[in-house]
Design a protein around this nucleic acid. Structure first.
Lengths: 139, 139
DNA sequence: ATAATTGCAAATTTTTTGCAGGTTC
DNA sequence: GAACCTGCAAAAAATTTGCAATTAT
């Protein structure tokens, strides 16, 4: 829990048990959505209210502690922001999300052509079937 | 209107005026969200109900006539699916979305390493500032 | 004629808000 | 002690549903 506490260091946000639990859940899952966070935390933390999770996800995102993923057909998922830059692999069967490090340096030069648009960063989402799901469908 | 009617040809969906108007709106805007569609269509089509738009966006997506975009911090936007493969540029200031053709052939080979994951396709979203917004902030 | 679609109103689900009591710094 | 947070309950917003009348094929 001390690990995630550090994520709040340069923010005005207080390290409440609920907030740390939410961060810890996201950190240990890698990626988590609101419902999953609520379900998992409710077990050990029965009074954890939905409103608290809504407020926290909003605030944590606002202060750049977490990031929202933008995945097709999925409820919003969150990940810890302080990670090396990476992209995402999404299994369209089970929904599992995996981080992947990609060299996308060939994209930047192609955007030079776009009249006057200043690109800050690009996000890549790759969709397909994970090995688990592939094996299941194969028999 | 005949143009968008063709988009329904290989589906069991009927070409109702409401449906065609929705498709036409998306086609002419390039990308549109539910609220915008509703606002714009209500002008000429006062009885157009929100429920009809919800149902249509769902059905049209289900049959692959339209695609939902996955843009950070934005309400779901839709585009016509039958278009050459492209990616998206998003202005973080005004929200404007622009299509962009990118060669992402360098990504595929990098994914060979990922154990057992079969990638179908990748989506790239590039975020930045469009020329309009850049000029405004510059004075 | 048949099956699909619309629009309304109601129901449901999701998200936000206000505030009293409690907590962190 | 000041500012911030939580959890509750209520409010607001977003989305879905059921159904009778209508429409496309």
């Amino acid at each position: 829990m001390e690990k995630v506490k550090r994520l709040l260091e340069h923010t005005p946000l207080k390290a409440t048990p609920q907030r740390l639990a939410i961060l810890n859940e996201i950190a240990s899952m890698g990626h988590a959505d609101l419902e999953t966070i609520h379900n998992n935390l409710s077990k050990n933390f029965p009074s954890m209210s939905l409103a608290t999770i809504y407020k926290n996800l909003h605030t944590l995102k606002e202060f750049g502690v977490i990031k929202e993923l933008n995945i097709d057909n999925t409820k919003n998922k969150y990940e810890i922001a302080a990670q090396p830059k990476h992209h995402h692999l999404v299994c369209k069967v089970c929904g599992e999300v995996t981080d992947v490090f990609l060299d996308i340096s060939t994209i930047g030069p192609q955007l030079k052509d776009v009249e006057g648009f200043d690109v800050d960063y690009c996000e890549v989402y790759c969709y397909g079937t994970c090995s688990n799901c592939k094996n299941k469908s194969a028999g």
